[in-house]
Each structure stands twice: as structure tokens, then as C-alpha cells.
Amino acid sequence: MIPLKHAVIVGANNVSIEVARMLADKYEVRIVDSNEDACNKAYKTLKSAAMVYKGDPSDENVLNEVGVDRAELFLALSEDDKLNLEACRVAKRRGVPLIIARVNNRDMEGSFRELGVAIVNVESLVSDNIKNLVLSDVARVLTVDQSTNLAFAIVRIGENSPMVNRQIGYLVENYDITIPYVITAGGAIKPGNDYIIESGIELVIVGTLSNVERFINEVSTE
């Protein structure tokens, strides 16, 4: 059995619960929130799909206890932008390869971008027009920043995918996307353009929504 990857979610709210359900088949999901009632609700709703911790998500000691050092994915999804930003700073210092933050106030977007964090609004995160892609056999995470129309996806490469044995540079040039990370059994790495794609790996894809959707559709043609 392939071991589950680790994901940390900040905020125990309806959005977090929905995202945790989407990730549960591939990730060991851990949710952290300082509100006891919210934690109890998430625990009762998700049951074994996620572990729920009560604590301040902006506190580095709390995030260490939750397991931020092992996380391949960090999602700051609370309704408090300042809390999300502080939590993302901790995740960034700890070297989490993929950090995505919910931004409720557009005036805060610049702070997250300066940190190098992917940002989304809550509507795009779970909207119906991307939900099928999120739950598909190919793309297990897809979020869209509606202010820039940039999409962020984690895409699995199947055994019979037409992308097997292609170079990263070929995908970047032909689909007008960027691929900042490749996730292998050994963890996340930053690939060069000459990196050869193998089946079983996952690609972190960034590009316009139309280009990312086109790539996902063609990857799934197996």
C-alpha cells in the first residue's frame, strides 16, 4: 500500500470539511483550529477522514505538533486573513512545497503574493464548475484565483497517459503552464525542463484555467 501524503488545513469550517473529504483518499489530513465548537463539529462530521487539533494555527509550536514538517500540502482556509497569513509564514519557513490560502479581503492579496503563496477565494475553491475535476481520477486538487484567472492543480500521471516519457519542457511549451514541483514517492522535487515524466508521479500545475483544464483533459485520455 502506498503511504498517504500529509496535508494540514487551518480552520475547521464548512469549506475545510469539504476539502478534507476531497483529500482523504490520498492524504492523511490534519485540521487545526482554536475554536472548540468548530473542532467538535469537524471531528463529528469527518470521523476517521481527518484528525482534528484544537490550538492556535498561527503558533509555530502548535503547527509543529500537528505535523507541518511532514506536510506536502498546506491549506490556510480560515475566515481570518491575518491568521491565514501567519500560518502560511510558518509553513513557508518549514519548507512545505505547496501552500494555498483562502483570502477573504482582496486588500490582503498582496501580502500573500509577496510570501509566494497561491491564493483562492472560497467560492472558487468548491464551486460546481471545478468540483468534478477535483473529484476526478486525474486531478485531486484544483483551485482558481478568480482575480488573476490562474488555476493550481495536482495532476496524477497514469500508466497509459500520453504524457509518460515526455519532458517537462515539452508540457510547459505546448500547454503554456508552469510545473514548479513533481511529487514522487520520495517527496516533492523541483524539476528541470529535461525531467522525464514517469507514470505514478504527480505534477503541480499552474496556469490559466483554460490551459490547466485542457492539460487535465488530455492527461486523462488513457
Rank of each mutant, 00 (worst) to 15 (best):
N174F: 08
I119Q: 00
V172R: 03
S111M: 13
Q146N: 08
R70Y: 08
D194R: 01
Y43A: 12
G110T: 12
S210T: 14
N40E: 04
V155F: 03
G55C: 12
D137V: 01
T178W: 09
K54W: 04
N104C: 14
L83E: 14
Q146S: 09
L46G: 00
G200S: 07
S199I: 08
S199M: 10
M22E: 09
I179C: 09
F74G: 03
A151K: 10
A38N: 14
I201Q: 15
L125S: 07
T148H: 14
Y43F: 06
F74V: 03
F112A: 11
T143H: 01
I196G: 04
V138C: 07
V155L: 06
T221S: 13
M163T: 13
A38F: 05
V19Q: 02
I130E: 01
N165R: 14
L150E: 10
N13H: 03
E222H: 07
S16P: 00
M51A: 10
E159Y: 14
V90Q: 09
R214D: 15
N193M: 13
A185D: 08
A20R: 01
L203C: 08
Y27S: 02
P97S: 12
D128G: 10
K190Q: 13
N121T: 08
F112H: 04
D81H: 07
N217F: 11
M22H: 13
F152K: 10
T178R: 15
Y181F: 13
A151Y: 02
A185P: 00
G192D: 14
S124N: 12
S127F: 01
V144D: 00
I9D: 02
K82A: 13
S199V: 10
P191V: 00
R21D: 00
V164Q: 11
N13F: 05
A42Y: 00
E79L: 09
R30M: 03
A76Y: 02
I130Q: 01
I130G: 00
G110Q: 11
V120S: 06
R102F: 07
